[in-house]
Design a protein around this nucleic acid. Sequence first.
RNA 1: GGGCCUGUAGCUCAGUUGGUUAGAGCAGAGCGCUCAUAACGCUUUUGUCGUAGGUUCAAGUCCUACCGGGCCUACCA
Length: 571
Amino acid sequence: MARILITSALPYINGIKHLGNLVGSQLPSDAYARYMRAKGHEVMYICATDEHGTPAELAAAKAGVPVSEFCADMHVVQKDIAEGFRLSFDYFGRSSSDRNREITQHLAAALGREGLIDVVSEKQMYSHADGRYLPDRYIEGTCPNCGDDKARGDQCENCTKQLDPTDLINPRSAISGSTDLEVRETKHLYLKQSTLRDTLDKWIDSQEGWPILTTSIAKKWLHDGDGLRDRGITRDLDWGVPVQFEGAPWSGMEGKVFYVWFDAPIEYIAATAEWADETGAGDAAWERWWRTDKGADDVHYVQFMGKDNVPFHTLSFPATLMGSAEPWKLVDFIKSYNWLTYEGGKFSTSQGRGIFMNQALDIFPSDYWRWWLLSNAPESSDSNFTWESFQGGINKDLADVLGNFVSRVTKFCRGKFGEEVPAGGSYGEAEAVVTAEIAKRLKAYEANMEAVELRKAAADLRAIWASGNEYLQAAAPWTLFKESPEDSAAIIRFAFNLIRLYGVLSAPYIPDASKAILAAINAEDAAWPDDIEAALSALQAGHAFTTPEVLFAKITDDRREELEAEFAGDD
RNA sequence: GGGCCUGUAGCUCAGUUGGUUAGAGCAGAGCGCUCAUAACGCUUUUGUCGUAGGUUCAAGUCCUACCGGGCCUACCA
């Protein structure tokens, strides 16, 4: 038994996330966590809301509530939605927690002691009308290069030229439109990542089997131009972890907070501590996951994220932990995802294109979404959501291949033998063939799960389901029943054992359906199979069952067209 | 501009360190079955593996150039 630490990238607090966010970290990490638990490993699966930063403050202002209240409310909303999708976090924390403040400050102080923090004086735009400093992106103006009047302070979207806010002609606040801006001198802490460049480079090189997407992004940042640059880790904001605190090795940083990207990954650690606090498990309980001097040495740590998150997880966060010179557990495997597109285009909040997590749950059961998204996860390149593909996947895979298999077996049995697993007859060649087939597929399924290839593993799982239909068709118990009910009974008995096995194996992908299947056949034993033959004889003659209702209702063409229209967006 | 990824059957994708007749699912066609959510099974059509060169006994797989699609480029998170 291994100990597996799993973290999903933190969803940002400013609104409800769409399906692209879901498939890029939370969903695959959940399937992985469920699989690892089923295999008997000790799992700690952590996620949290990422609550700091300018967008959170602005969203709160727009909603007309204090930012702390806004975050508290949105945290509950996101937590409920996560439960709706059956995301099985051991703890869903908040980056605004006391624990995160404590650990973030602790790590910053350690970095300071190690000489990895610089105090840098820089110029920032201050907006009088907004009463705040504005990040470069929140300043708009006319591009000095191409004359586009919607250029942002970091880059002109039109001509792609990199800009400095002071380059803009007629700069204005992107929030209020105010031109009452002032360049102010302000001090910030910088993490001297450049010092750790070689260490990080070697560390990345020593990793095996990481997705190309992960390593290529990390390498780009390490080697592009002058190499890895130092990074500002503080901001002039109100909401966040205070930079000036008791024991801080710097002074004069009152009123500033750590940059959201500094404290967000630390929340993985802090959320584990929050879990220990809430369960009363004590500090040792979380430290054994995170401190290699306190038991975390044998932990296998896997992170899940969209590709936008990769630089922070491959470089900044490891630099923070390594640089502290304390024995923190570093990540062992970074799984990164490409984007999910919607009907060939981008998901767009502003244009109302695409599907948000709350809407999705209103339309179909979570298993539908889980299955389609995971079996089409953007693992090798971007993948595209279309209602047609969704309909096809659900109807074919879930309704026809799996659902109908359960249905045809249970209904046939009820009609011919009654609602208990029938006795009589014996197994022969056909059972041996399908058992061998499933054993082979299961091996592939497990190998792909271990390798965090969720899309491929889904195809293996589907093949396992399909083998049941092949078996049934070849064995034809309905024909045999006429001359030899006993032999027919043996086939049905075996088919019931397939159903049970499917219930067990499907749980990482479709937990609700899995539960429904196992409940219908009254299966007490839902353990992951070690021995496939033993697993296929768990249900004995006389075992009572109930015939389930339709497990997966099909999506009709009319319904699909309705949804296509409903989600087409404004334009 | 620089970098990365990607281009394989009508569609979505697999193709391990280059090695015999290039695979799966969906869609299409034919046959079979009739227990089942008109579900299932079997058989089957289609490919100059983006284009042009090159390396090699041998290339979808390696190299170069070009064409198409996407992403990243450090103050959104």
